[in-house]
Amino acid sequence: MKIIGRTLIILAAALVIAGALFAFRQTEYARMPGETRPGRMRIEAGEARPGGFAPGGFEHRNRAGGDEHQASLAGLVEVGKNLAIIAAIVALVVMLERVTRGLRQRTVARQVETEPPS
């Protein structure tokens, strides 16, 4: 019973987000033609796409050379790209965490050393 209730809460939250999405679709902004929309949306529309950052994932429909209706090992490149992005973020965050922890420990040790005995 508990699980059903919790599942319904999660579904309700998802429904609220989906509802907001459909409400966004009805706005003037979403109805604008591609040329008048800001840069990122035009990039996503396939008019221009910078290389590098954006993961290859979900790129289908009307993309040059991208027949995604059939499976192909060439898709491993997309997996590799996304994995590389995730690995870079993990490495960066873990490194930052270690540096800040080390600095904090050092300052605590210094404070202990400089504090006069009471």
């Binding site: 993961p55 790129e59 289908h60 499976a71 090992l73 491993l76 996304n82």
Partner: peptide, 15 residues
């Protein structure tokens, strides 16, 4: 998630 972000790998139906 990794597989789903690569529809070229799985094909659109599996994606």
């Amino acid at each position: 998630f990794l597989a789903a972000t690569a529809p070229r790998l799985t094909g659109i139906a599996i994606h």
